[in-house]
Simulated assay, not measured.
Amino acid sequence: MTIERIRGIDHPKPMWLWASETGLHATTMDRYRQAYRRRFDIEHLFRFCKQTLGWTKARLRDPAAADRWTWLIIAAYTQLRLARHHTTDLRRPWERPSTRPGRLSPTRVRRGFRYLRTKLPQPARAPKTSHPGPGRPPGSRNKHPAPRHPAGKRPQPETKG
């Protein structure tokens, strides 16, 4: 299959794709080509979620908590995607300007996200200042330590012989 034009590339280089199926139709091969090109978008999304949004930074003990953390990261990423039309492009000196204002990357939206609050209506009053609670008195021991789950094999019980 020969590709005449790829968006953003004037002279595309040959792309070699291998599939173990025989007798593929042109539409199936085109779908494989599109999936191969989209893999970079997916890899960059995972890298952004891990490095910038801290997807793997949390040390969670419960699988349900890990699921909630994943959904929280997805919600944060969605907010960044939805706010890209309302933020300004705060680019670094070495970065090129964005081609269109509504097509900012999530990293650039994150940079301008703090200035977005002044543009939005404030439905609630500012929170009251408070003092933190007393906490555990100094010198006392923790009566409820976090549960630890051993990883690996359990020790064999000793047999009396």
Results as ranks from 00 to 15, higher is better:
Thr2Trp: 13
Arg5Lys: 11
Ile6Ser: 01
Ile6Val: 11
Arg7Val: 05
Ile9Met: 04
Asp10Glu: 13
His11Met: 08
Pro12Ala: 02
Pro12Asn: 13
Lys13Val: 01
Met15Gln: 11
Leu17Asn: 01
Leu17Asp: 03
Leu17Arg: 09
Ala19Asp: 14
Ala19Cys: 15
Ser20Ile: 01
Thr22Ala: 05
Gly23Lys: 06
His25Arg: 05
Met29Ala: 15
Met29Leu: 13
Asp30Gly: 07
Asp30Pro: 00
Arg31Trp: 12
Arg31Ile: 01
Arg33Ser: 09
Ala35Asp: 01
Tyr36Pro: 01
Tyr36Ala: 08
Arg38Cys: 04
Phe40Ser: 13
Ile42Thr: 11
His44Ile: 02
Leu45Arg: 15
Leu45Pro: 04
Arg47His: 03
Arg47Val: 00
Gln51Val: 07
Thr52Lys: 06
Thr52Gln: 06
Leu53Lys: 03
Thr56Glu: 10
Thr56Leu: 05
Lys57Asp: 11
Ala58Pro: 01
Ala58Tyr: 00
Arg59His: 14
Arg61Tyr: 02
Pro63Leu: 09
Ala65Gly: 10
Ala66Ile: 11
Trp69Leu: 05
Thr70Lys: 12
Thr70Leu: 12
Thr70Glu: 07
Trp71Cys: 12
Trp71Ala: 11
Ile73Arg: 03
Ile74Arg: 10
Ala75Gln: 10
Tyr77Gly: 04
Arg81Phe: 06
Arg84Gln: 09
His85Asp: 11
His85Phe: 12
His86Val: 02
Arg91Phe: 08
Pro93Thr: 13
Pro93Tyr: 15
Pro97Lys: 14
Pro97Arg: 15
Ser98Lys: 03
Thr99Cys: 03
Arg100Gly: 00
Arg100Glu: 04
Pro101Met: 08
Leu104Ser: 02
Thr107Val: 04
Arg108Gln: 07
Val109Trp: 09
Arg110Phe: 13
Arg111Thr: 10
Arg111Leu: 12
Phe113Trp: 11
Phe113Asn: 02
Leu116Gln: 06
Leu116Trp: 15
Pro121Lys: 04
Lys128Leu: 07
Thr129His: 09
His131Asp: 02
Gly133Tyr: 08
Pro134Phe: 04
Gly135Glu: 02
Pro137Phe: 11
Pro138Cys: 03
Ser140His: 15
Lys143Ile: 03
Lys143Asn: 00
His149Gly: 04
Pro150Glu: 10
Ala151Met: 04
Ala151Lys: 14
Gly152Arg: 01
Arg154Asp: 08
Pro155Val: 07
Pro157His: 12
